[in-house]
Amino acid sequence: MKICVCIKHVPDTAASIKLTGENGFEDSECKFVVNPYDEYGLEEAVSLVEKNGGEVVVLTVGKEAATATMRSAMAMGAHRAIHVKTGGQFLDSALTSRALKAAIDKDGAFDLIFTGKGSVDTEGFQTQYRLAAALGLPVVNEVSRLTVDGTKAVVERETGSGEREVLEMPLPGIIGATKGLNEPRYPKFPDIMKAKKKPIDVISISDLGIDEASGKSTLVKLESVPERSGAKMLQGSVKDQVTELVRILKEEEKVI
């Protein structure tokens, strides 16, 4: 099987984000990682290929610095990488999906394409659907169980209050992975060393005929979410504290 995994280079979820200007952030100051949901897709791809043979190709549309993230993905078992290089971190998801499609077309058809359920920086929840429409492939997102059976896949997704939907899709297709699908492996030292020698094919986004500035969604403002200034701590015995809390919630906050 030839499997593609779309991986986004994103700031670690624990990193603090220092804003610059109206709509930027200081990306040289935070640690970047493989988007955590994309890791579930990557793990699934690697274990499928371990079982059935084939190759896993990671694909990233991102800045120069994304190289390190792609090396981490290869340390987890991907065989090679394609890096579509951009100037900025915030790329419209329609443009991203066009770039992903162009890179996929250039490399030749895949049997299966994985993405994450969403990215943890822009939280767009849509790139995989746009890529599917562009490639004319079926897509299911938030997949936490997958069975591949020849030319079709059976997938499961959670839909609310514990309800689960089982869906069938023909392959090739796109699967947006989420927690529950597997436990992504931690690469060992020799894997990290091996990953340094794996090939990365670098393509500039403009060589794919895409103008980075032509997106239809624009980030006009980025602002810190005001943090609560610290809790009002209740005092006294447990009984006093809960009585006071209930009074506040009823009379002052009016939330119960």
Binding site: P11, S16, V120, T218, L219, V220, K221, L222, V225
Partner: peptide
């Protein structure tokens, strides 16, 4: 954006 750390205004 960024796991609830920032709010982004996006114009379409």
């Amino acid at each position: 954006h960024f796991s609830g750390k920032t709010f982004a205004t996006i114009k379409l």
